[in-house]
Design a protein around this nucleic acid. Structure first.
Length: 509
RNA sequence: GAUUCUGUAGCUCAGCUGGUAGAGCAGUACACUUUUAAUGUACGGGUCCUGGGUUCGAAUCCCAGCGGAAUCACCA
């Protein structure tokens, strides 16, 4: 255990003092709350004389003792409310221990307490709880960071003092971050609402939420390096999934018309403010549809998410206001590249593409095929400039081994990505359901692998077997929940939308 | 992996060209029955990230390491 600080020792001593007074610092019995701070703030009116018997519980976040009466702040899951604690009211008899010793001396900021009382407004108009009973519910042995706020009378803005800001501590001790930084809590509530709003949308359409394996004997469905693990009893290597695509398509083969899954996927690659080794996607597959239909769905679903979270389609992200109102801009990949670089690359062969890339200062590796070069040009010169939600359609076949060939553009597939704030937020195709073509595409991937592409896909015989039994024409979608959450909550880093982002161990020498 | 910044009290931070470790909040004690960054007085609290080196003397300078952030690389 770590060396205890002065304040931690004091709190442990107080714990013993409480026990000596016969007060259990961690009582077992339930404490029935009947109201939350926020609903009192929203609905209390002195003239109605409502909220005259309230029971609340939460953390003690501040206290101002003024002799025989005190003000304190209680924070529950909905917010904060002021408490008024009067010695002679919580200690009606001769024994003033509960006020003089327990409340004034032995309670600390951060302790969980329960209170009963009635609501009133103080002379300065602050809605408060006049406490008649007070009970310790759980003692906190470590001091929380002390964050104070003050309302600026002139502007009405809240000024925060000594905010808990050290990113390392905030990520390592997210529980502390959540307690003292209300905006952090709000971000995660919004993330949850985002997922809920998508789920509601998909359920309303009658699609089935499913679960598919995270531990897979072969990884597939995306171009990425996997995490590898081992099952002892079977004595076999397994991979943590990098995508769910191939399993969800097996379910379409099995006869479901629409299946979706919110899934943690794992990619053993670099970390950045847009990348965490484990991240969340929602994948959706709908039978008898195509990618054009899926574009409409994405627009509608994401517009609905924005409305659910913000009540409007405009969302402030950094310096930009992003408007998710339908319809979104649509470009083919070649159109977009031409628009932003002036280069018409549609008819170029690999040699010409390499020359163009060089002209545009795009760095290439010898292992890159034609499709990868196009992708590099797009990534370097176009993607970052697409701030408003934009669909990019019709990708080269080589970089989309699971997408169906374009119905009338040779060499292309029916695929789109939605780009927003300069980053991809989703990827979708008319799914390849021709088993012979799919086998050939896998074989082409194996070739890329031999050229040194560590992210080339592996051939999945069982998946091909499923396709050979017949998969209906299907539209598929993968949408990055972390990326979308970042945009919807105006978060600069993926770490701000993950409760517990990946970190190196604290004590490593 | 590269570059830059960064690590000092529970929290937020200051600490100059090297000379006994500082502030505010938090804490402790006392006072105070409508305060709200409550107030007043007094007091306590440190492995200055770790390990070397230079020096009479290192939080400070040098080297190495560890953690974190940003940008880049990588990553559809």
């Amino acid at each position: 255990m770590h060396q205890l600080s002065e304040q931690e020792i004091l709190r442990r001593n107080k714990l013993e003092e409480l026990q000596k007074l016969g007060i259990e610092p961690y009582p077992s019995e339930l404490f029935d709350v009947n109201f939350y701070a926020q609903e009192i703030h929203d609905n209390y009116h002195p003239e109605l004389n409502n909220f005259q018997e309230v029971v609340l519980a939460g953390r003690l976040m501040s206290s101002r003792v003024m002799g025989k009466a005190s003000f304190a702040e209680l924070m529950d899951s909905s917010g904060r409310i002021q408490l008024y604690v009067n010695r002679d009211e919580i200690c009606p008899g001769e024994d003033k221990t509960l006020y003089n010793v327990v409340f004034k001396k032995l309670l600390d900021l951060g302790d969980f307490i329960g209170v009963k009382g009635h609501v009133f407004k103080t002379q300065v108009g602050e809605t408060s709880i006049h406490v008649t009973e007070l009970k310790l519910l759980a003692k906190a042995l470590r001091p929380l960071p002390v964050v104070k706020t003050q309302k600026d009378e002139a502007t009405g803005e809240t000024i925060t003092y000594d905010a808990f800001t050290d990113p390392e501590q905030r990520y390592r001790q997210r529980y502390v971050d959540l307690v003292v930084n209300p905006h952090v809590r709000d971000t995660f509530v919004k993330r949850s609402q985002l997922v809920q709003s998508m789920r509601n949308y998909l359920n309303d359409k009658g699609y089935l939420e499913v679960e598919t394996p995270i531990l897979q004997p072969l990884y597939g469905g995306a171009a990425a390096r996997p995490f590898k693990t081992h099952h002892n009893t079977l004595d076999m290597d397994l991979y943590l999934r990098i995508a769910n695509e191939l399993y969800l398509k097996r379910l379409i083969v099995g006869g479901f018309d629409g299946v979706y899954e919110f899934s943690k996927d794992f990619r053993n690659e670099g970390m950045s403010r847009f990348h965490n080794p484990e991240f969340t996607q929602m994948e959706l597959y709908v039978a008898y549809k195509d990618y054009a239909w899926m574009m409409d769905l994405v627009e509608e679903m994401v517009e609905r998410v924005a409305l659910a979270l913000h009540g409007k389609t405009e969302v402030q992200v950094g310096d930009n206001v992003i408007n998710f109102q339908r319809p979104w801009q649509r470009y083919t990949m070649f159109e977009a590249i031409e628009k932003y670089t002036g280069e018409a690359i549609g008819e170029m062969d690999e040699t010409a593409l390499r020359a163009t890339a060089a002209k545009l200062n795009v760095h290439l590796e010898p292992s890159m095929g034609k499709a990868k070069i196009i992708d590099e040009i797009f990534g370097e010169h176009v993607e970052g400039k697409l701030i408003q939600p934009t669909f990019i359609t019709d990708y080269p076949v080589e970089m989309s081994p699971l997408a169906k060939k374009h119905r009338d553009r040779p060499g292309m597939v029916e695929r789109f990505e939605a780009i927003c704030n300069g980053k991809e937020i989703c990827n979708a195709f008319s799914e390849l359901n021709d088993p012979i073509d799919q086998r050939k595409r896998f074989e082409d991937q194996l070739e890329l692998g031999k050229r040194g592409d560590t992210e080339a896909m592996v051939l999945d015989e069982d998946f091909l077997r499923a396709l050979e039994y017949g998969m209906p024409p299907t539209a598929g979608l993968g949408i990055g929940i972390d990326r979308l959450s970042m945009i919807m909550t105006n978060s600069h880093s993926i770490q701000d939308v993950l409760f517990f982002p990946q970190m190196k161990p604290e004590n490593n020498g």
